[in-house]
Design a binder for these strands. Structure first.
Length: 426
RNA sequence: CGGGGCGUGGCGCAGUCUGGUAGCGCACUUGACUGGGGGUCAAGUGGUCGCAGGUUCAAAUCCUGCCGUCCCGACCA
């Protein structure tokens, strides 16, 4: 891709209405633009990152045996009446009517729809266990959307649902999914933690949250300094009748091993054992050995769009975004510097571009008619990890310069050695 | 929903108190010079001043109502 064909949409100044770093950087770097409170456009660069997140998730979900489907964003409210959740969910559920005055809502989550789907398509207990997932737009009419896509009303989520014949089966599906999540979060390359959580309004028993660590995180997490014990501090406060979650620091860990440490996190994943809450209320049953069985359900969510904001909260500097290798919108950018000074500059850029592209390197070529400084600043703001600078200075001895985003020095290499050099860097 | 900001070209802001020709910086267009860390000069494009009413000879400015948006709180799979 060449920048001359790309809607970069970077801007120089911070938007006046963005206060958190990730929100500011996402707008400045041209990843998103706001449409209304909690509702955003994803521009080409942002969409590209989002797609990377989705692919990392999709790969692990698929290899765990889950099957991808796509459910509608618009759902009949009758399903929510059937599950009894319509009151409980309240105004966060955006309800409206179609031209025939039938009542619908925008899906904030899909337990009702998937349970309805399964009661229609699953005909035998032999078809279980099964896990289905989708990556799709959700809408929750948040009381107060904030921090850009961190807490938006419309967002992209991967949600998965498992169906088993027994609680033991659910345990197994749950741990399969947890395993997939561990792979996903490992592959994202971000610092994260898993904690015990409150299962909240969605219902059910066991639940664990996946948090990306960041000082600006809204959730406080408590860990034992000498065991695996980890819990959302909010839940611990409830359990122990404490007042201030911050007072937990240094107290003995509830599992009797060591003392508690506190860290802040951003919740980006949540896995639950739902049990029979929805299969019973929506009458999903299959015939078993002795009579009908209501399947044991689990549900598993990852906030794909929120991961991007969280990644930026965790990794940025005064120049802009720092992506983990897994999420960068482009792996390498060729900065064409002062091409009018020497004809060879454009040709070398073309050669290097072709070389990288044909070797499956995700490369951007900044061919804009701008001064080098403008390009450096923009590309560092967007957070492209590696810059290859090709200009009148670098081509003197037929070499190009390679600069890593996080390092000050540049290194001169021959064009034919670039691939080798890139593999050493990563 | 309670409290507090803010709404003036794409972005950031001044002007509002004290009514009188809508301004600045950035960005953008054209040209020249320039060219390795957000260039210079020159000439330009672009705004019903959030919306609706009212007061006035005259409203971005004063009054009333509404809308949007941000922050704090309550809330949050």
């Amino acid at each position: 891709m060449k920048t001359s064909n790309l809607l970069l949409a970077t801007q120089r100044e911070n938007p006046s209405d963005a206060e958190t770093v990730s929100h500011q950087l996402m707008i400045k770097a041209g990843l998103i633009r706001q449409v209304a409170a909690g509702i955003y456009n994803w521009l080409p660069t942002g969409k590209k990152v989002l797609r990377k997140v989705e692919e990392i998730i999709r790969k692990e979900m698929d290899s765990s045996g889950a099957q991808e489907i796509l459910m509608p964003m618009v759902q009949p409210t009758s399903l929510w009446e059937e599950s009894g959740r319509i009151q409980q969910y309240g105004k966060e559920l955006l309800v409206f009517q179609d031209r025939h005055e039938r009542s619908f809502c925008l899906g904030p989550t899909h337990e009702e729809v998937i349970t309805d789907l399964c009661r229609n398509v699953i005909k035998s207990h032999r078809e279980l266990p099964i896990t289905l997932y989708q990556i799709q737009t959700k809408f929750r009419d948040e009381i107060r959307p904030r921090f850009g896509v961190m807490r938006s009303r419309e967002f992209i989520m991967k949600d998965a649902y498992s169906f088993d014949l027994s609680p033991e089966g659910l345990d197994k599906s749950y741990s399969t999914m947890k395993e997939a999540y561990l792979n996903i979060f490992h592959n994202l390359g971000l610092e994260y933690r898993i904690v015990k959580a409150d299962s909240g309004a969605i219902g059910g028993s066991d639940s664990e949250e996946f948090h990306i660590l960041a000082d600006s995180g809204e959730d406080l997490l408590a860990f034992s300094d000498s065991s695996d014990y980890a819990i959302n501090a909010e839940l611990l406060v409830e359990l122990q009748d404490e007042q201030d979650p911050n007072s937990l620091e240094g107290k003995p860990s509830p599992d009797g091993k060591g003392n508690l440490l506190l860290k802040k996190g951003i919740e980006v994943g949540h896995i639950f054992k739902l049990g029979r809450k929805y299969s019973e209320s929506l009458k999903l049953r299959v015939q078993g050995d002795d009579g009908d069985v209501y399947p044991e359900m689990g549900c598993y969510g990852i906030g794909a769009s929120r991961i991007i904001a969280a990644s930026i909260e965790q990794n940025h500097d005064e120049k802009g975004i720092i992506w983990p290798k897994s999420l960068c919108p482009y792996e390498v950018v060729i900065v064409e510097a002062n091409p009018k000074k020497k004809e060879s500059i454009k040709n070398t850029c073309e050669e290097v571009y072709e070389l990288l592209a044909s070797n499956n390197v995700d490369v951007l070529w900044d061919d804009r008619d701008k001064r080098p400084g403008v390009k450096f600043t923009d590309m560092e703001l967007i957070g492209i990890p590696i810059m290859i600078i090709i200009g009148d200075k670098s081509t003197e001895d037929n070499k190009v310069e390679i600069k890593v985003r996080l390092e000050e020095k540049t290194e001169r290499v021959s064009p034919q050695d670039i691939l080798q050099k890139l593999s050493e860097i990563s």
